[in-house]
């Protein structure tokens, strides 16, 4: 799993799952000793861009509150940004990103969490699409 995708999915993962896995990793002495917080969690606003589906042009939807954090474990850096103001989970997500870079076994566990999140997102989208399908309009073009 590439890093962009991992960061995207860690931002969308459930808070409790992210924190739980981070705590498991932190219980390992090597991680706890070598962890450095590069940027403590900070809350800010960023402009959310959306691409409209007809001309595929980007536009600014509005500003959203996000929390970002950055950590390093033995020189391997981890970064996370999540919507909302949950500092603890943002820090935990950054820790998971760093752990995935630091150790292949931990990377597998993070990938498992990300895969679970991806499946959940896909299921949500399918379910939303099923609800919307009833309102779909089929246009006929006149010659």
């Amino acid at each position: 799993m590439d890093r962009n995708r991992r960061t995207e999915l860690l931002a969308a993962s459930q808070s409790q799952e992210v924190r739980q896995l981070a705590e498991t990793f932190l219980s390992e002495r090597a991680i706890a000793e070598e962890l450095h917080v590069i940027c403590p969690p900070e809350i800010g606003m960023i402009m959310m861009q959306v691409r409209e589906p007809v001309c595929r042009e980007r536009f600014h939807l509005g500003e959203v509150v996000v929390t970002r954090a950055e950590v390093a474990i033995a020189g391997f850096r981890g970064w996370a940004v999540r919507a909302g103001s949950d500092r603890e989970t943002a820090l935990a997500a950054a820790l998971l990103d760093a752990c995935a870079e630091y150790d292949s076994k931990m990377a597998n566990q993070v990938t498992e969490l990300c895969d679970l999140t991806a499946q959940r997102i896909a299921a949500d989208e399918r379910s939303e699409w099923q609800e919307l399908l009833a309102t779909a309009v089929a246009f006929e073009e006149l010659d």
């Binding site: 070598e34 450095h36 917080v37 590069i38 940027c39 950055e70 390093a72 474990i73 033995a74 020189g75």
Partner: peptide, 19 residues
């Protein structure tokens, strides 16, 4: 302290200087 750990400390100090 490993080199990587020292590197992390130095990097964290640099980031702190930039904030």
């Amino acid at each position: 302290t490993s080199d990587l750990d020292t590197d992390s400390r130095q990097y964290a100090a640099k980031v702190a200087a930039c904030r």
